[in-house]
Amino acid sequence: MPVKDEYDLVLAVAVARRHYEQHQAKTEIAEALGISRFKVARLLDLAHEAGVVRIEIVEPVADGGLARELERAFDLRCCSVVPMPSSAPEVRAEVGRAAARLLDETLRPDDVLGLPWSRSVYDMVAVLETLPQVPIIQLSGALAGVREDSSAVDLVRRAGRIAGGGRQVFFAPLVMPDDAAAQAVRRDPAVRDTLSAADRVTVAMVGVGAWEPGQSTIFDAVDEECRDRVREAGVVGESVGACFDAGGTLVSTCLTDRLIALSPDQLRSIGTVIAVAHGEGKVEALRAAMTGDLVNGLVTTHDTAQAMLELA
């Protein structure tokens, strides 16, 4: 190795220690060593290239202890707890990854997967890498105002490409302005046949929303009068539009016939329904959904899991 290269490597080690161990900014290092900040950047690159600095990315390991406690407390078939608080900036991505792993572990070759639109399902599908070769059926229409690439159809198509087992989709809104409009949409052959095919679904990944502002995309999408009427009916939460009270009992509301989604009874009849949800605002709704056997699987965060166990 030429002398100049040797010197640069020694200097790269010194720069790397200051930057990564002592958390000094590049400008600080440059001033201390009498070199330019551009030279500092080149030396850090050299440290990486020479193997002086090695970066390892370690995904959070699910909290198995809390997950098993939740399974016992709520008689769940499966559970994954991400070891971070719901307030963490990267929480949605990590919960999505945990949900993707749990789904891949849960599905068997003879299963049929159902996916509705929800923010949590979008986060999961965005990081999916592998799935068994199972058919996938869309469980709900699309919600206006979301990203163009995150409609229910887009989610099912992406998951279907990964699984390679076929898919069944339809184009329709999730919430219609009134019952008559919803009835007209349901008569469309693609909508009718896909929602009928939901009877074949054996595993579903869903979101759970509390009936409060910012805690349910359906709550946020409907008018104030509808929100109040649903709340007056005793509703504390919803999943794929299926509304339920604090005891987990399904509640028929003014909203029920306006939704383009599988029926609440269809949702309840699915063998494995895994909820992906977290946050203090959703604890009561999650507890009710699990108590009423509407969902029997869960992916959540550490703080949400602890809060739910306190309620249990």
Rank of each mutant, 00 (worst) to 15 (best):
V236R: 00
A246N: 09
A233F: 06
L267Y: 05
V251I: 15
S263K: 08
D228Y: 09
V273S: 08
V230Y: 12
L259M: 15
R227D: 13
I274T: 12
E238G: 08
S269K: 06
S252F: 06
G237C: 02
A261R: 03
L255E: 07
L250F: 13
V276W: 02
T253Y: 06
S263P: 04
D257L: 06
S252K: 11
D228V: 13
R229P: 04
V230R: 11
E232T: 14
I270K: 00
L250V: 15
S252P: 00
C243K: 00
G247A: 09
G241H: 12
A233G: 05
C243Q: 04
G271M: 05
L250P: 05
V236M: 03
T272L: 11
G237T: 07
D228S: 13
C243M: 07
C254M: 10
I260P: 01
I274Q: 05
S269L: 02
L259G: 12
F244T: 05
L259T: 13
A261W: 01
T272C: 14
G237I: 02
S239C: 14
I260H: 03
Q266T: 10
R258I: 12
G279V: 11
Q266W: 01
A277I: 05
F244L: 08
T249R: 12
S239H: 08
P264K: 02
G247V: 03
V273I: 15
F244P: 02
E238W: 12
L267F: 09
G248T: 11
E280V: 14
L255M: 15
L250I: 15
L250K: 04
D245K: 08
T249F: 02
L267K: 03
V235K: 00
